[in-house]
Amino acid sequence: MVILLKVPPKSMFKFMCVSKPWRRPISSRKLVKAHLKLTANDKESSHHRVIFQDSTGNFKVSRLPPLFQRGQKTELFDMGSPMENPTIYTRIVGSVNGLICLYSNLEEPVLWNPTIRKSKILPTFGAKLRRDCSYYLNYGFGYDESHDDYKVVAIQCISDDGGSYDTVVNIYSLRNNSWRTIDKFQGNFLVNSSGKFVDGKLYWALSADVDTFNMCNIISLDLANETWRRLELPRYGEGSYPLTLGVVGSDLSVLCPNCHEVTNSDVWIMKDCGAKVSWTKNFTIDHPKDLGEFIFFSPIFSVPSCQSSKGEILFLLPPVIMIYDSSTRQLEVAVPSEECFAAEIYVESLVDPVLIAHNH
């Protein structure tokens, strides 16, 4: 057991293909979780990867550490796509424990582990989802540790001919391999299309007006007890601006532009202490004016970020990967790409979505 824990995930997967006596212990829940804990906490990030989506909907993968090494060419490896008909409209919802959640307007959502090349197509919503009259559809993906279950949340805002809207929230359990409807949140409209997963909860930004991206507060969904909570924004100044949710390290963050020039932006970090939430302005990023509102708040923008040992932070700002240097407060291009429409950081793991659903 101890020796197996030190074997890289891809090699472990090859061992599983040798025979059934090899497959059983390697695919056991206990070993998979222990192996994941070691790889996820690897200080050198040698098992962390960045996955990029190109203009055809297919994916390329790079090791994470080389992105922080200036002047070194980043190698990209083709990964294809688990979708039957990948297009640019295929979206990355998020990544947890090596699983990546994808959705498309044309197909059902998919849970995919690119390390072991296993994917699970989620069952259809059935009558619960009214695709013909949806005003918008937002997803979230996270892990419920208390039930050892991976969950996908689909939030649909439904419009009628009278101009009013209703919200339906469906949640999928991988362990039960089924969807069900849960209580919805009260009022307002979601801004970011994909919820940000932090410490057992999914977070979305809320806007008071469906036609703007100006945030008024944040809501969270606890995946364990499936309850909603409304959170206040950081006190970042007068006026209302389009803000962006992200994750820095293991904390929820908010990116706030300063003034109308938008030549720098503040990054606020949230600490959730149970009944009380506190915000701290962590750092300010100086950036050219043309990197302002258009890039920072476009629908494809995401802020999954990873911090290096030198205090540098990686931002995925399609179509480029940028590094924030805390000593200079500047953004630098790390990986220029004309075909990077989405990106996500994930950790290599042995988590098999097909096996989890099958063993129920």
Rank of each mutant, 00 (worst) to 15 (best):
P66F: 02
H358W: 02
K128I: 04
K196T: 15
S326R: 12
V198S: 03
T244V: 14
W204Q: 06
P8L: 02
P353T: 13
W279L: 07
K151P: 02
S326W: 11
L129R: 10
K60V: 06
R229I: 11
S159I: 12
N97Q: 03
P21T: 12
H147V: 12
K184A: 14
C273F: 12
S193I: 11
N214L: 04
Q53K: 15
K6W: 13
S302W: 04
T263L: 09
L5M: 07
E75D: 09
I158E: 09
W22E: 06
T328I: 15
H260G: 00
T167S: 06
F141G: 07
G71R: 10
L221R: 03
L76W: 08
R229L: 10
A342C: 07
T87M: 07
L36C: 06
Q330I: 07
L102F: 11
G311Y: 02
I345C: 09
E238Y: 10
G98L: 13
D166I: 00
D54H: 04
K43W: 01
N113A: 07
T181M: 14
L245I: 10
I356N: 02
V335M: 15
S178W: 06
Y324S: 09
V7C: 13
T56V: 10
G80I: 14
E312N: 04
L331K: 07
A205E: 06
L202C: 13
T90H: 01
R175F: 12
L190F: 01
N214S: 04
F315S: 01
S298C: 10
M83E: 05
C216N: 10
S207M: 03
I121T: 08
L36E: 01
L206H: 13
S253Y: 05
F59P: 09
R230M: 12
K276V: 15
V61M: 09
N85S: 03
D54P: 01
N97K: 03
S220L: 11
R175D: 09
N176P: 00
N58Q: 15
S265V: 10
A154C: 15
I269G: 00
S119Y: 05
F294W: 00
H35D: 12
Y89P: 02
F315E: 05
N113L: 14
I218N: 08
G94E: 03
P318W: 02
T280C: 14
I300M: 11
L111V: 11
K201A: 06
L223W: 00
Y135Q: 13
N170A: 14
H287D: 05
E107I: 08
P353I: 08
V18D: 06
V335N: 04
H35G: 10
W268T: 05
Y143D: 15
V7Q: 08
V335D: 05
I116R: 02
F59M: 14
D251T: 08
D132E: 14
S178T: 15
L206A: 12
D42V: 11
N138E: 14
I51E: 12
M215I: 12
V335C: 15
G274R: 07
M83W: 01
G239S: 07
L252A: 11
C256Y: 14
Y136H: 11
I321C: 10
C273S: 12
K30S: 15
W228S: 01
D149K: 03
C133A: 07
F297C: 11
D209S: 15
